[in-house]
């Protein structure tokens, strides 16, 4: 079952003749529980694609369907709620709330939704990601690798339909990056989570079940399973 579908996604910036085609007719389908990497050079349009997939930006044309729901037709408010429940994000720059501790950061999206925290599930995630002893630590007391693990935990905690990761190892040195990737792959498997990860690094891409290559705003290979 395709959990995420993008049809003919197009994103143009500016007007002709100075128009930049960031995305030029991208169609992809992500199956449930797949771990997919999107690989492309910087400027290939891969980050733009991720923003469209997550409903963070509006495409010029085309549609995004997450879990059977077309998100481009939603109102701002509906989209916010939909995103909170269905999409988990992991960014290059961790984006943790500095005044909240590890546990509070992880359960924040659930509490924002006014839902009850599945404490047993969160404990399991903490254990798997090796954060159990750091639960009361503040973000500034953690290393980069640990902060990114917290961000992964936060993305998983609300059991979203899909986790979107944008260069999650981009701000980490090779060793730490390798470490965080392992954690991401392992948790994806353990919690049966669908993941789309953007990277420019072919070596990292191999960890995925499938690799989608993007070039000049178009899919070069791997668009569908």
């Amino acid at each position: 079952m395709s959990i995420l579908i993008a049809r003919d996604l197009t994103k143009y910036y500016g007007v002709s003749p100075n128009q930049v085609k960031a995305l030029d007719g991208v169609s992809i389908a992500i199956e449930a529980r797949e771990f997919v990497t999107v690989v492309g050079q910087s400027g290939s349009g891969k980050s733009t694609l991720l923003h469209m997939l997550g409903g963070l930006d509006v495409p010029t044309a085309g549609e995004v369907v997450i879990d059977g729901h077309e998100i481009s037709g939603m109102s701002e408010e509906a989209l916010t709620i939909f995103r909170r429940r269905n999409v988990g994000f992991v960014f290059q720059s961790f984006n943790l709330v500095p005044i909240l501790n590890v546990y509070e950061n992880i359960v924040l999206p659930i509490e924002l939704d006014g839902s009850t925290v599945d404490t047993k599930f969160v404990e399991e995630i903490l254990g798997t990601l090796g954060l159990a002893e750091k639960r009361y630590a503040m973000p500034n007391q953690l290393s980069g690798g640990q902060q990114q693990r917290v961000a992964i935990a936060r993305a998983l905690a609300s059991k979203p339909s899909i986790v979107l990761a944008d260069e999650p190892t981009g701000n980490l040195d090779t060793k730490t990056g390798q470490d965080v990737l392992g954690a991401l792959k392992m948790t994806a498997k353990q919690f049966k989570q669908t993941i789309v990860m953007i990277t420019h690094n072919e070596h990292i891409a191999q960890l995925a079940d499938r690799v989608i290559h993007i070039q000049d705003g178009r899919v070069k290979s791997g668009g569908t399973q």
Partner: peptide, 21 residues
């Protein structure tokens, strides 16, 4: 699912969302 139901700030909407999952 019914798309309208899953994006409301109420318990039923949350339930429908979970049911979808």
């Amino acid at each position: 699912g019914l798309p309208a139901e899953i994006t409301k700030e109420n318990r039923i909407s949350k339930l429908v969302h979970k049911a979808n999952r």
